[in-house]
């Protein structure tokens, strides 16, 4: 058995606030495999963003251990070069696209990361072109970011991370400020990066539908790991989720309501298609007639 890509053990972190220490993360342990797609759920202030910033050493934990690709990054003897290597491997995309773009020309911004890494000029050019193609923004290479839509800006931010050739990308509520179209584009890119490029994806979100796309869900509550499992497992506990200020996708909610009314519906029901399949199966079992519309 290979060791996991990210291994977090007994991680704790507290903010200093007016002399008092306010714990944000408490004794948190979990692991993420290489190439996994993991969603992190939790209410506002549950410690999700802090966790993200600990994973690439923007913050230093008070206690506990983080191992990434076999190297303990919480090791006090970590060299500066190793620190930047961690940040390169663990790319991060934030919520507000405006506050993460540095340059006034799209391609210059995408080049920012590789330039910092000291990549040779010709290779930067190549990486920038590839990254922009991957997010479908080649046409905008010479545009000014501030004239683009939120979704487009966020795609530029993602391209800027891709150009650093990361192993893992952490999305910190990266869809929260986008309209449905922008969100759809960003989610498609996330899927794509994970499925086709094998990039490990950690996504922090408030949208249950987005968490349902992941391989696995971690639920945080007040800095502690509250639940973890596949989306199907997690969303089969609507009451526990409601108790900590979360909910379940509408599809799952419907199936729970039907079950509560005594109608047995089998299956996971995370997406409309799964949900429709499960309900049709239940209807067939009850001998309810189907009259498909003639078109």
């Amino acid at each position: 058995m290979m060791e996991p890509f990210i291994q977090v053990e007994n991680l704790s972190y507290a903010y200093e606030e007016e002399g008092a220490r306010r714990p944000v993360l408490r004794d948190l342990s979990f692991a993420v495999e290489k190439g996994e797609y993991v969603a992190i759920l939790g209410h506002n202030g549950s410690g999700k963003s802090t966790l993200a910033k600990l994973l690439n050493l923007i913050l230093t934990p008070d206690s506990g251990k983080i191992v990434i690709a076999g190297r303990e990054i919480t090791d006090p003897n970590l060299t500066e070069d190793e620190l930047y290597e961690v940040r390169r491997r663990m790319g991060m995309v934030f919520q507000n696209p405006d506050n993460q773009l540095v340059a006034t020309v799209v391609e210059e911004d995408v080049a920012f990361g590789p330039e910092n890494l000291g990549v040779p000029s010709e290779e930067i050019r190549q990486r920038v072109d590839e990254a922009l193609a991957l997010v479908g923004m080649q046409k905008y290479a010479r545009h000014e970011p501030h004239r683009l839509s939120g979704g487009q800006k966020q795609r530029i931010a993602i391209a800027g991370i891709i150009a650093m050739l990361p192993d893992c990308i952490i999305f910190d509520e990266s869809t929260a400020m986008l309209d449905p179209m922008g969100r759809r584009d960003v989610l498609r890119i996330m899927d794509n990066l994970n499925r086709e490029r094998g990039i490990t994806v950690l996504t922090i979100t408030h949208y249950m539908n987005e968490a349902a796309r992941a391989d696995r869900v971690l639920v945080l509550n007040d800095g502690e790991l509250y639940m973890q499992g596949t989306p199907a497992e997690i969303f089969s506990h609507p009451d526990e989720l409601a108790a900590i200020g979360l909910d379940v996708p509408q599809c799952t909610d419907l199936v729970h309501q039907l079950r509560a009314a005594g109608i047995a519906v089998e299956g996971d029901c995370l997406t409309p298609a799964q949900c429709a399949d499960a309900i049709c199966a239940a209807c067939a079992a009850r001998g309810i007639p189907f009259n498909p519309p003639q078109s």
Binding site: N44, A176, M177, M208, G245, L246
Partner: peptide, 8 residues
């Protein structure tokens, strides 16, 4: 409600 969790 932009950017808030379900309870918020």
């Amino acid at each position: 409600a932009a950017g808030l969790d379900p309870q918020g």
